[in-house]
Design a protein around this nucleic acid. Structure first.
Lengths: 235, 235
DNA sequence: CGTGCTTTTGAATAGTATCAAGGCCGGTGG
DNA sequence: CCACCGGCCTTGATACTATTCAAAAGCACG
C-alpha cells in the first residue's frame, strides 16, 4: 500500500473505470480501491488462489503466467500500463493464472463486491468490459492458431514481435526494453531456452537482429513481420 | 427461414435471452430475430465475412472452424443446443471464425442493432454475457495450455473427451454420436488423419475404445481421463 | 579475477509429418 | 445379390523437426 492516487485525479486515460463510470460511482470505487507497489519478480497474485477481485496496472510491466506440465512456466500474456489483470478469474472460484511484476509495478485493486456495485450502477461499464472480454477472446484464439501451427523459430519471431508491441524498444539502437532472459522468451514461445538460442542465431545470420549478451537489438522489424506474415489474420 | 418459434414460447431454457431479458425486451427481440435451418455441411457464417450479429443454436450440432496455414481446417470449438455462435466477432469488423452445421441445425439470429438495444435495456443480460465471455476466455486458455504442451496422442484423447462432453455417446455401447471422420478429429487435435489413426490404434491396444470402420466406441471413459489427468487444471 | 549464472552449440534421441501402399467399408449399378 | 468403385482408414518407411543432455564460452557481479 503506497501513495494513493484517487480515481478522480487519475491521469491514466486507458483505465476503463475512469472512462465508463459516472462520477458518483467513481467515488464509491474510491472507498474500496487500493493501490499497491510490487517489486520486480514479486507475485501480484498466484495461480490457484481465490479470486478476490480485478487489478489494473497503473504503472509498470507484468507477465501473466501459468504452470504447465512438470511445472514448466508458460507465459500467457504480457501486460503494461492501463491493462487489466485477473479478469480471467472473475466469475470463477480461483485465478487460472498468476501475475508477476517484471519491473517495479503499481496496480490498483478492486474487490468483487465493489466491482459488482460498479457494474450494477454503470451499464456502460459492464458493456465496455463485455467488449473487452470479446476482444481478449479474439486475441487468445489468434494465439491458439499460431501456437499450434507455427514452427519453433516462427513462434520465437512472433514472441519477439508481441514483446516489442507490448513493451516497445529503442527506436535508434533497436534495444528491446527490459532485457528478457531467454527463459522468458521460451516460456512465451512454448519451447526451451536452447531452441530460442538457435532461433536467435538464425535471425542473426539473416541480419534482422543483433545480440550482446542477453540484450537483443531489433535491426529490421519489417523483416521479422514478413517471416510470420502467412499467419496474420484479421483481428 | 422456417417455422418460427417465438422467444416467449421458446422452451430452450439454456438461451441467455430468455433467462436474462425482461418480457418487454423479449418482444422487442421478437421483431428482429429470425430463425433458420441449415443442412449438414452448410456454412452458418464464414470466416472473414462482416459481423452482422450473434447466433443461438436452437437445435443441432455445429463445428466452429478457422483456416490455418495452407488452408488446413482447424476446429476451434464444437457447439450444440443452447450454445452461442459468432460472439467472438461481436465488437469486431469480421468474424474471425466460421461455423458449419454437422447435422441439420436450427439457429436463431439476432442482428447487432437489436442486440445493442437488448444490452441497453437489460443490464442483467449484459452482465450475463460478460460472465459468459469471461468463462469462454478461461476455456480457451486452458486449451492453449494443452495444445502447446500435450503430445499428439494426448491431444487426440483430449479431443475425444471434449467431443463426448459436448455431443455425448451411447451409454450402453459407447458409440460416439455423430460419427466424426478422422479428418475432423485431427482438425480438433491439431494434427493429421494419419496420426489420429495411430493414436486410436494405441488406445485400442490399451482397451479403452473399439472401432468399427469410422465408428468409435468408447469403452472406458475413465481411463481416457486418466491419460490427460496431468493437464487437468481448475476451470 | 574468480564464481556462478546464462547463453550458445553439438550430438544423440525422441517425436511428428509426409508419402505411399494396401485394406476396409459403404454405396451404386448392373 | 453381387461386383465394382471411390473414399476413408490403417500402417510402414522415411525425412524432418524438436527436445534433451552435455560441454564450452561468455557475461555479470562481487
Amino acid at each position: 500500500m503506497i501513495h494513493q492516487v484517487k480515481c478522480l485525479e487519475c491521469k491514466n486515460t486507458k483505465c476503463s473505470i475512469q472512462r465508463y463510470c459516472s462520477e458518483i460511482s467513481t467515488q464509491v470505487a474510491e472507498l474500496s480501491k487500493s493501490q499497491s507497489l510490487y517489486k520486480t519478480g514479486q507475485y501480484i497474485f498466484t495461480e490457484g488462489s481465490p479470486v478476490r477481485g480485478i487489478y489494473f496496472i497503473y504503472k509498470g510491466k507484468v507477465k501473466v503466467v501459468t504452470a504447465g506440465i512438470q511445472n514448466r512456466e508458460q507465459i500467457v500474456r504480457l501486460a503494461s500500463e492501463g491493462h487489466i489483470l485477473g479478469h480471467r478469474g472473475y466469475g470463477g472460484e480461483i485465478y487460472p493464472i498468476g501475475a508477476v511484476a517484471l519491473q517495479d509495478t503499481t496496480v490498483c485493486f478492486m474487490d468483487n463486491a465493489t466491482l459488482k456495485e460498479l457494474f450494477d450502477k454503470n451499464p456502460n461499464f459492464t458493456y465496455a468490459m463485455m467488449m473487452f472480454y470479446s476482444q481478449e477472446l479474439r486475441k487468445v484464439e489468434k494465439r491458439i492458431k499460431y501456437v499450434s501451427q507455427m514452427t519453433v523459430s516462427e513462434r520465437v519471431v512472433e514472441s519477439l514481435l508481441y514483446y516489442i508491441n507490448t513493451f516497445g524498444y529503442e527506436k535508434g539502437s533497436g534495444l528491446m526494453n527490459l532485457g528478457l532472459p531467454r527463459k522468458d522468451i521460451s516460456a512465451l514461445a512454448g519451447t526451451n531456452a536452447d531452441q530460442v538460442s538457435r532461433a536467435l542465431s538464425e535471425l542473426k545470420r539473416m541480419g534482422v537482429l543483433e545480440t550482446k549478451g542477453k540484450r537483443i537489438y531489433i535491426l529490421n522489424p519489417e523483416k521479422l513481420r514478413e517471416i510470420v506474415s502467412d499467419f496474420d489474420i484479421a483481428l
